[in-house]
Write a protein that binds this DNA or RNA. Structure first.
Length: 157
DNA sequence: GCCAACGTTGGC
DNA sequence: GCCAACGTTGGC
């Protein structure tokens, strides 16, 4: 099972929204590197849910991949904020996955904390200038992060 | 709100 | 194929 990290602005879509909805399509990704990572995702892979562009950026919960990559309909929807004129139903260009809520952390594992861990040097999330919204979490980094995740509920993990 | 860093576009 | 200009991300 692979581990991924996905960023969301909580004003747009938060871990609480995911908890309430249980499942959500991860659409609107318009970056090739992020899209290519989504294409590598397999059902059952674990996702670290990250809040970005907010007061306290950091990991806030976990989810599972519940549907693998398939065309993101918003890319050819002229009414969508994610509309891409270079996309069409015949040539979608962009993909989405579906994720399912797993668990929420007791409190945010903040970016500040993650940056303070020397063992995470090299992890794209903490690299200067990195803006990737979807990234793999290599095993060596997962080994550092996993033990410090404190879940709200322990039964679903 | 600012701005550094980065990805994408398009002229040449 | 280069690279300047532009738009976006996201921490601070």
């Amino acid at each position: 099972m692979a581990i991924w990290l996905m960023k969301s602005e909580p004003d747009e879509f938060s871990i609480n929204d995911l908890k309430q909805n249980t499942r959500e399509y991860w659409n609107g990704v318009r970056n090739f590197q992020a899209r290519n990572f989504m294409r590598q995702m397999r059902e059952g892979d674990l996702v670290l849910f990250y809040h970005s562009s907010c007061k306290t950026p950091g990991i806030v919960g976990t989810a599972y991949i519940s549907k693998e990559a398939h065309p993101d309909p918003s890319c050819w929807d002229t009414q969508s904020v994610y509309f891409d004129p270079k996309s069409s139903p015949d040539a979608p260009r962009w993909d989405q996955v579906q994720i399912r809520f797993d668990n929420k952390l007791k409190k945010t594992l903040t970016l500040t904390t993650l940056k303070s861990l020397a063992e995470l040097n090299g992890f794209p999330l903490v690299a200067k200038g990195n803006r990737l919204s979807v990234m793999p979490v290599e095993d060596k980094y997962w080994k550092v992060i996993q033990p410090i995740l404190e879940f709200d509920a322990t039964d679903s993990h």
